[in-house]
Design a protein around this nucleic acid. Sequence first.
DNA 1: ACCATATGGGCTATTTATGAACCAAATCCT
DNA 2: AGGATTTGGTTCATAAATAGCCCATATGGT
Lengths: 112, 112
Amino acid sequence: MAKPETRPYSSYSRDALALLAQLIRRARIDRQLTTQELADRVGISRGLVQRIERGDPGCAIGAVFEAAAIVGVRLFDADQRILIAQLSANNAVLTLMPKSVRHSTGKVKDDF
Amino acid sequence: MAKPETRPYSSYSRDALALLAQLIRRARIDRQLTTQELADRVGISRGLVQRIERGDPGCAIGAVFEAAAIVGVRLFDADQRILIAQLSANNAVLTLMPKSVRHSTGKVKDDF
DNA sequence: ACCATATGGGCTATTTATGAACCAAATCCT
DNA sequence: AGGATTTGGTTCATAAATAGCCCATATGGT
């Protein structure tokens, strides 16, 4: 529908995106990596690293998460072990949940 | 360089991506929203919602974050106020940091 | 059990992101 | 201050994501 660049974003997701971008940039500098070096390690171009650190909403989430992981930015404020645990736990919950969301027709029995 | 679909991802970023996807799906079902309804609210197509909930690394991070925000999934385990605080705090730190990472040439003075 | 509907998957056209090479300017080390 | 290098911002070609359909299946309310 809307172009990623012109999509309306909620303030929360914009802030979250900006914060993640800043955390990545700060972590990269802390680790004494140039944008080119980070790009090489992630396997992307330097230009993409710049857009990631700018908080561009159109970047592929895989590239952003990978860059974050490489410079040591952890998401969900949890380390990987807890992450995996939550993964399978969530899996269990998901199998117990209704697999399709059904809306009641709103039609009441009016034939009386 | 590499195509997003064939990029090598670290186990951490893969897990983080999978977890985020599951959290979004679970939150959507909890809120009794169909994939179509979520798509409408985010302003994206239903197919994209499906790929987001599948943890596709190629999805635009803006779309994923927006979907997460709409169903109430908070990243960084923090609400917006804390988010903004961290943002400005990080900004302050960033301005105090070196703006470019310079590597010592490694060349030692060998002209003696 | 029936039936409406939600979901998942495929397909094509269009829009977009990405990679690469370039330049100019800011920046940091010596 | 000098000088190499990082960075930021362009432009352009290409690859990929996205939207919008379609269909078949699974699902849950009644």
